[in-house]
Design a protein around this nucleic acid. Sequence first.
DNA 1: ATTAGCACTCGACCGAGATGAGTGCTAACA
DNA 2: TGTTAGCACTCATCTCGGTCGAGTGCTAAT
Lengths: 343, 343
Amino acid sequence: MELDERKKIILIAVIKNYLETGEPVGSRTISKYTDLNLSSATIRNEMADLEELGYIIQPHTSAGRIPSDKGYRFYVDQLMNDKVKEVEEMKEVLLEKEEKMENLLKQVAKKLAVNTNYATMISAPSIHGNKLKFIQLSRVDTNHLLAVVVIEGNVIKNKVIRLDDELSDETILKLNLLLNTNLNGLNIEEINLGIISVLKNQAGEHSEIVDEVIDAVADAIKADEDLEIYTSGATNIFKYPELSDSERASELISTFENKEDLSELLTADDEAETGIQVYIGEEVKMKSMQDCSVVTATYELEEGMKGTIGIVGPKRMDYEKVVGMLKNLKQQMSDLYKNDRKD
Amino acid sequence: MELDERKKIILIAVIKNYLETGEPVGSRTISKYTDLNLSSATIRNEMADLEELGYIIQPHTSAGRIPSDKGYRFYVDQLMNDKVKEVEEMKEVLLEKEEKMENLLKQVAKKLAVNTNYATMISAPSIHGNKLKFIQLSRVDTNHLLAVVVIEGNVIKNKVIRLDDELSDETILKLNLLLNTNLNGLNIEEINLGIISVLKNQAGEHSEIVDEVIDAVADAIKADEDLEIYTSGATNIFKYPELSDSERASELISTFENKEDLSELLTADDEAETGIQVYIGEEVKMKSMQDCSVVTATYELEEGMKGTIGIVGPKRMDYEKVVGMLKNLKQQMSDLYKNDRKD
DNA sequence: ATTAGCACTCGACCGAGATGAGTGCTAACA
DNA sequence: TGTTAGCACTCATCTCGGTCGAGTGCTAAT
C-alpha cells in the first residue's frame, strides 16, 4: 500500500509536470524529466501501478496520465514542500493607511488575485459575542434622531430614527443616560426581552425609540455576520482551458457572484492545525466548484475577530505557491492590528 | 434618404426577428413574417436598398441580414414602441423596509438582472455640494474618540480617533461646540484651509483632533463619490452566443468586475430628455464593451441625490423591454423617498 | 529488474464532398 | 413600373474518411 521512494518521485514528476502544462503527461517525458535514469518502459510499469493504486488517471487509453484527487491529496499532504512565500506588493497594500476595512480587504483580494492568477475571495472579520461599548443618541434635525451604536472592536452602526413628535434636548439626554447605564458592557446575548421591556417601561412614552435603538444594536451585529465578502479575479479562470468552456465558466462565475454560496466555502469547519485548508475537487462543498480546488486561510485581527481568505483555481493549482502565500498573508494580517496600526 | 413606409416595416421586421433569434434573417422569413404580402424577391430588393443605406449588414455573401449600429439606432429613436413596463417583483423589493441603501440597491440590481437576462449595475446616489449637518465627538474608551459626521441627506460617516493623551469630558464638550458652531451648515466647498486653520488655532493643543475630524468630513463626501457600484447578472452574457466565446466573455466580465470602469459608463453625459440613454455598439465609451449595448437611467431620490442604473447586453438587446422597465424603475425609485418611506 | 521493440488505441487535425439557407440577377408578367 | 418566378451562385456548416502522432501495454531479450 505504501508507495516506495521511486513511485513517489514519479508521482511528484507527474503532478509537477501536469501543474505546469495542463496536458496529460507520458512516460517518455518523465523518463527525461527526472534523473532516475530509467527508460520510459520502466516508468510505464510504475505508472500502471500508480494508476491501479488510484493516484493517477488516464483520460483515455492512449493518453498520458493526470493526477487524481487522491493523487493531489497525497501531494499536498506529504510530498509538498511548504515554504512561506511573500505575496508581491502586498506589504505596500497593508501598510497604506486604509481608512476602511472594506477597502483594505478589497485591495488584498485584488493583489492576491493578480499574484496567483486564481480567483480570490475574502470575508470580513466578524466579531463573536462582543460587548456593547456605548450608545449615543443625537438630534439631527427637528424630526430625525441619530443613534450611534459602538461595539467592542470599534464596530459602529448608525441609524436614523424618524420622530413623530418633537423631543426636547432634555429628553434626549435622559434617553441617552437610560440606554447607556442599562446596556453598556452587556454581551449581545445578555440583551434579552427582559431588559428590553424594563427599558421600554422606563422610557415611557418614548418606548418606540428604544425599540429602534435595539434594532440598531441587533443590526450592528448582524451586519457583521452578514455576507461581507469581497472577491477578485473571477476571470482568472479563463486562463485554465479545463474550466473555461462557457458552461463551466458561467456556472463558476455565477457562484462567485453569489455571496451566500461563498460564505459557505469560507466558514472553516475544522480550523485546528495551521489554519490553512485545502479542498481538492470533490472535497469542495459547493457542487458547482467540484472541478476546482479551494484553499482557505483564516486570519485573526484582534480578540477573536476572524475572517477567511479563499482562493479558487483549477485542481492543477500551484498548491505550493498558494499555501505559502496564504501562510505569509495570514501572518501579516494578524500582525496588522497587533501594532495597533499607527500611521 | 428618408425611408418609405414599406422599408420601415421591413427594417422593423428584420430587427425584431434578429432580436429574438440572433440569427441573420433572410428575405423569405420576412416575406412570411410580415403581412405585406410580398414575395421574397421583392423583399430582397428592398433589403438591398436598406443595406446600401447602411441600416442592415450582411455578415457574409450568402447569409441573411443583421441590423447595423445605425439600424438599431434608427429603431430605438424612431420605430420603437415605448411603453412603460413593470419589472416583476420589483415592488416587493422596494417596499421591503431595507435598512441599508446598499442592500436595497443590491436587490434592485439582482431583480433587474433576473428579469431582463442582461447584466445590470447600479450606482449609489451621490450628493453634490451638500451641507454639513452636524458633528458629534464622543469618548468610546480612555484612548479612543468617536467622530460622527452627518451630511445633508443623512449620509453618515464615523471615524475612530486614537488619542495619545487623555481628554477630559469638558474638553470634548468644548471641541464639540467649536466644531459645530464653526462648520455646521457649511457647504463642503466652503470648508477651506482658512476655516481649518482658524479652527486648529482655537483648538490649541488638540489641533490634531480637528485634523482627524476634517479628514472624516472629507471622507464622508469622498466615500459617496467613490465607486459604490453594485452589479448583478454578469453571467447573463453567456446566454448570448455572440458574446460568450471565452475571450470576449473574459474581457466583459473583467470590465464588470472593475468598478472604476463602470463608473465611467454610469456617469451620464447629457441627461436632459427622459433621462434614459441608449448606447449602441461603438457608442459605448468602454472599448471592451463595444460589441454590446448599454442602457442607463438616472434616478433621483431626494434633493439632488442622483444615481444611475445601467444595463449591459448584446446589441440585439430587447430595447423596448429594457427602456420600458428602466422608465418604470426610475419612477418607482424616485417615489421611494418622496413618501418619506414610512413602513 | 530493466529495457528495446512492436502492435495497437484514440484524440486531433485536415481536406473533400454534401447540404442548405440565402443571395443577386434576369426575364416575364400585371 | 412594380412585382414575381426562376435560376445560378456563394458560402458557412456538417460529416466522413484518412492520416498523424503521442502514448500505451505486452513480450521477449538482456
